[in-house]
Amino acid sequence: MRVPPWALLSATAAPVLLIGGWTLAAARQPGGFDQVAGTISALAARDATDRWIMTLALVGLGLCHCVTAAGLRSLRPTGRALLALGGAATVAVAAFPLPAERGSSAPHGLAAAVAFGALALWPALAAVRRRAPSPSAGLPPRGGTTAAAVLLVAVGWFVVELVTGGPRIGLAERVAAGAEALCPLVVALALHRRPDR
């Protein structure tokens, strides 16, 4: 089953919104913004200049994940549901901004944890398990497990930087979030290119 064009569009828009959002929002901060040390959430915090840019990018990213999940019909429903949950949690991240650049918020932290976790694990649960592999079917188990392992390593680095107050927290978050935004696109393109049988 080929991936519908609207799902390919949403999968393509997701990383564009995220990376474009953090790039434009950082450029709008007076005095510059250190993207290696500063988090994505700081760009949407209540005291950020033009916080609406990153807020809209996060909402768009989350909605794209939900749309993409609906379009990846050849994958297991549990994986698709986890991708949609990650999208919904990303919208919640935008709905519960940080009070200030260095402030904290329990709802924001919980939404971010659910989003990062769900978006890292969905490929493993989306993989179709079968005795005789078919080239037209969904994500192979090894591919889903490998993708999830890579995403979990990236998220793990971000968590270590977050807990230890590391100087590269922004870079670690961008690597993890960027990889998670690109993963549905890679899966959608791989499924779209497979021949129908």
Rank of each mutant, 00 (worst) to 15 (best):
H65M: 13
V150A: 15
P77K: 09
P77V: 12
L56G: 09
A70M: 11
V153E: 12
G31C: 08
R28W: 10
A11S: 13
A84F: 08
R131M: 10
T90W: 08
V160W: 11
L162R: 14
A100T: 15
T164P: 09
L182P: 01
L72M: 11
W122C: 07
R193Q: 12
A115C: 12
V91Q: 06
V163T: 13
G178R: 06
P15R: 03
A154I: 09
V3M: 05
R80I: 07
G31V: 05
L75S: 01
Q35Y: 05
G156M: 05
P123K: 07
A137P: 05
P135V: 13
V163P: 07
A148R: 06
R76T: 11
W122F: 13
W6N: 08
A25W: 01
G60R: 01
L17H: 04
L17S: 00
P184G: 07
G109I: 09
L82G: 03
C66K: 03
A11K: 03
E180V: 08
P140Y: 04
R194S: 12
L18D: 00
F96A: 12
L171H: 07
A126K: 02
A126L: 02
E180L: 14
A89Q: 07
A88L: 15
P30W: 07
S10I: 03
T146A: 14
A92Y: 07
P184S: 09
A172C: 06
S104L: 13
L85R: 04
L83N: 02
G60I: 01
L189F: 09
G170R: 05
A188F: 03
